[in-house]
Design a protein around this nucleic acid. Structure first.
Lengths: 149, 149
DNA sequence: TTGCTTGCAAATGATTTGCACTGCT
DNA sequence: AGCAGTGCAAATCATTTGCAAGCAA
């Protein structure tokens, strides 16, 4: 499975993943993914609803949860803020987060291919030793963003 | 600041940190930290209250939040489970988490000193480039624990 | 038809807050 | 005295759920 780059690829991959999870690829779900795809960072429910025409909040919660279980969407909780959602690594590029402990803003970064590979091998070794079957990892930097300091 | 190993060190460091954040180091706070210190993994509010004699739930929330802002406690949110709390890296050993996406259980692991150093230097470089002042990082492995698979 | 999806409104559950009181400093 | 810290109960806010109607396979 490759990360999607074009809108068309996004929907093709998404549809595939929905089908294999026995989910219908409805208009609503398509629109939610498109909203997340357009966003430059993770969005909370309010933002998803605001940026998706004709989406009820309960449907947003329900669909995001289904899509999350199917691996299309990743959820991230920051402090006691509402949960933020973004496309999963399977639908977008693998990346990590810088989280400001003051304003709770989140921005993205990527490690070099080399670093990412090395990290992956460390984590794979740890998982193996503990009998854990790893499906992914997350790496956050905590601190103060430039706006807050 | 060194990670604490003995109970005495824990309270000495904790008191210091409270003082410098203009917080009183009360009996209640001392008991909460002791509860977290005894635990083998992160605890949710219910568990903290259950394991701390004479602690009101609202006091638990209020104190944990104060202690979190002062850097004594780390909070972690897993899926839509209640938030879990543990001693911060400043009061305990720096470590990372294995999170089971099926049962939401959390266990700990450490990287080798070498790996941890390398990781730190990568993150420091990223932060510098983005004008972010890093105070720490977190690294989670996601997947299926041995009990669930 | 059959059962997944949806929107609305009501319910739930975690977390926060108002208030009066206690206890450091 | 003066203000941080406390317990209790009430309030708030994100998230979940029941239900009746809509829509896709």
């Amino acid at each position: 499975m490759t990360a999607t780059t074009t809108n068309k690829e996004l929907h093709e991959n998404a549809q595939q993943m929905c089908v294999s999870s026995h989910l219908r690829y409805t208009e609503t779900r398509r629109k939610i993914l498109e909203t997340l795809s357009k966003a430059s960072c993770a969005l909370d429910i309010e933002q998803v609803v605001a940026n998706t025409k004709g989406l009820a909040q309960s449907s947003a919660y329900r669909n995001i949860e289904e899509l999350r279980k199917a691996g299309l969407i990743a959820a991230m909780a920051v402090a006691s803020e509402p949960t933020k959602y973004e496309l999963s690594d399977q639908l977008a590029h693998h990346h990590h987060h810088l989280i400001c402990s003051s304003c709770s803003s989140v921005s993205d970064f990527e490690l070099s291919g080399d670093a990412e590979e090395k990290l992956h091998s460390w984590l794979e070794a740890v998982s193996k030793k503990q009998g854990f079957s790893m499906t992914g990892h997350s790496l956050d930097i905590g601190g103060m963003c430039s706006a807050c300091s």
